Simulated assay, not measured.
Amino acid sequence: VENMLVALDAAGAGIADVASTRVLVASSERRDLVAAWEVVRAAFGEHDVPSTLMGVAALGYEDQLVEVEVVAAVRPG
């Protein structure tokens, strides 16, 4: 979530500019998916966007457990 906020800021965006999210969790355990989801949802507060939560077999980096993909809409300034 911290990396997401840094990336949004670098693009001139913030949480309010996010249009959708996809959260991938390297686990098939429901409790792991719920734990990751709760962290992401807490970061968004009242800004509720369409989101997808999926358990996957593996992610791209060794020991990577969660990946958050965010689509934000920012007007060119």
Rank of each mutant, 00 (worst) to 15 (best):
L33S: 02
V40C: 00
V66S: 03
D9T: 11
A43G: 04
G14L: 04
A19M: 10
A13L: 07
V23C: 05
A35H: 10
A7P: 00
V34A: 06
Y61L: 14
E38S: 14
A26E: 08
L33M: 08
D63R: 15
V25I: 15
R30A: 12
N3S: 11
E62G: 04
A19W: 03
Q64T: 04
S27Q: 06
P50F: 09
E2A: 12
V71Y: 02
V66C: 06
G12S: 06
S20A: 15
V39F: 01
S27K: 07
R75P: 03
A7S: 14
L8R: 00
E67T: 07
E29P: 00
L8E: 03
L5I: 04
P76N: 11
G60D: 15
I15E: 08
S28N: 12
V68K: 04
S28G: 13
D32R: 05
G14C: 07
V39G: 00
V25P: 02
V71D: 12
P50H: 10
V71Q: 12
D32S: 10
N3G: 14
E69N: 12
V1G: 10
L24R: 14
T52Y: 03
D9S: 14
V70I: 14
A7Q: 13
D32M: 06
Q64H: 03
R31Q: 11
R30I: 04
I15V: 15
S28D: 15
G12T: 09
V56G: 07
E62Y: 07
A16C: 01
Q64N: 03
G77I: 07
A10Q: 13
S20K: 13
E69R: 11
A16N: 10
A16E: 15
V66H: 11
R22M: 03
V6N: 06
P76G: 12
L65A: 12
L65Y: 09
V18T: 13
S28K: 11
N3Q: 12
M4Q: 08
L5S: 05
V23R: 03
V18W: 06
S28A: 13
A19L: 11
M4V: 13
G12D: 09
M54R: 15
Q64S: 02
D63Q: 14
N3H: 07
